[in-house]
Computed example of a mutant assay.
Amino acid sequence: MTAFIRPSLILRMDLDERLFNDECVSDIKRSYSYVAPSLVQAHKPVGGQRPENVMRFMIKLHRAYWDKSDEAAQQLWKGVMPKWLHNMFSKVSNTITAANNVRAENDQPAFPYHWLELEFGDNALIAVKTGSDSSFPADGVGMVERVRDLMNAGALGQDIACVRIPSRASYEAQLAAAEQLAAAEQAQAEGTAAAEQGESAGQKAEQAESASVTAEQAVDAADAAAEAQAEPADVAEPAFAMPELPAFDVDYGTWGIEYVDGSVREFDASAGTFS
């Protein structure tokens, strides 16, 4: 029976408005058309936060499936959802990679998705941080199964708006540590480069003294500069570019349980307790 039941899926991309334009919308809808219908919308940048793009799975299954105490619902979940979720995570991750490969071939930066949101109707909303390459975590299905188990047991409380994996506070701390490490590595590399340059400073000084510009070259340079000032070229305003973040392995161990009243509690997933 369950072999013939499949959820329906709509993908909703919520983008930083500085990346939102007709070409972007067309590219997204074209790239994901074979996976599921796609909706694309924009949000204003939030003060104090980095720009972020969110991909949401709007999952529809017109039968009960979330309540583990309902035997029919439990059988439907076990027979359908884990395998379907695994296939969708794999298919969408591959599509993200393929789309970014095309962008690279056209000398365009990769288009990142920072969070994957899973909307299980009115049952639950789960937000999972993607990897540095926008890939979904390998244990994504296991995370969903754990959330369902805990919510059914009442272990996460009531009136939950979103289960965020990891919590925003945990992720920001991880990102700050990765940025500090990247800065330290860059400083070390620059120090090494400066030392190597110092060794050849004498040779460069001799070359600079022996080099000269002829009078004719100097006149040509002056004329070119005067022409450039007289007829300034139109400079196109650069397109907004997402800031590059250091690549690191995300620790998913601390969850953020976000409630409808706006409060957030940190949950230790390994211990199964609130911090």
Score class of each variant (00 low, 15 high):
Gly256Lys: 12
Ala173Trp: 06
Gly47Thr: 14
Trp84Ser: 10
Glu190Ala: 12
Ala173Thr: 06
Gly47Lys: 12
Phe136Ile: 15
Leu85Tyr: 01
Ala241Pro: 06
Ser31Trp: 15
Ile28Trp: 15
Gln49Ala: 10
Ala104Arg: 14
Gly272Gln: 03
Arg63Glu: 10
Ala110Pro: 14
Val163His: 03
Leu175Cys: 07
Trp77Arg: 15
Glu105Pro: 13
Ser93Cys: 04
Glu117Arg: 04
Ser170Met: 11
Tyr34Glu: 06
Ala230Leu: 13
Val46Ile: 14
Ile126Gln: 04
Val128Pro: 01
Ala247Gly: 14
Ala64Trp: 06
Ser26Cys: 04
Ala189Ser: 09
Pro109Asn: 14
Gly48Ile: 05
Tyr32Asn: 01
Gln203Lys: 11
Met151Leu: 08
Gly121Val: 02
Pro82Ala: 05
Ile257Tyr: 09
Gly140Ile: 05
Ala182Asp: 09
Ile5Asn: 15
Arg265Cys: 02
Pro246Asn: 05
Met58Val: 09
Lys29Phe: 12
Ser93Leu: 12
His86Asp: 15
Tyr259Asn: 03
Gly191His: 06
Pro232Gln: 12
Tyr34Arg: 03
Ser263Gln: 04
Ala187Lys: 13
Pro109Val: 10
Ser33Cys: 02
Asp220Phe: 15
Asp70Leu: 05
Ser33Lys: 11
Ala138Thr: 15
Ile126Asn: 00
Glu23Gln: 12
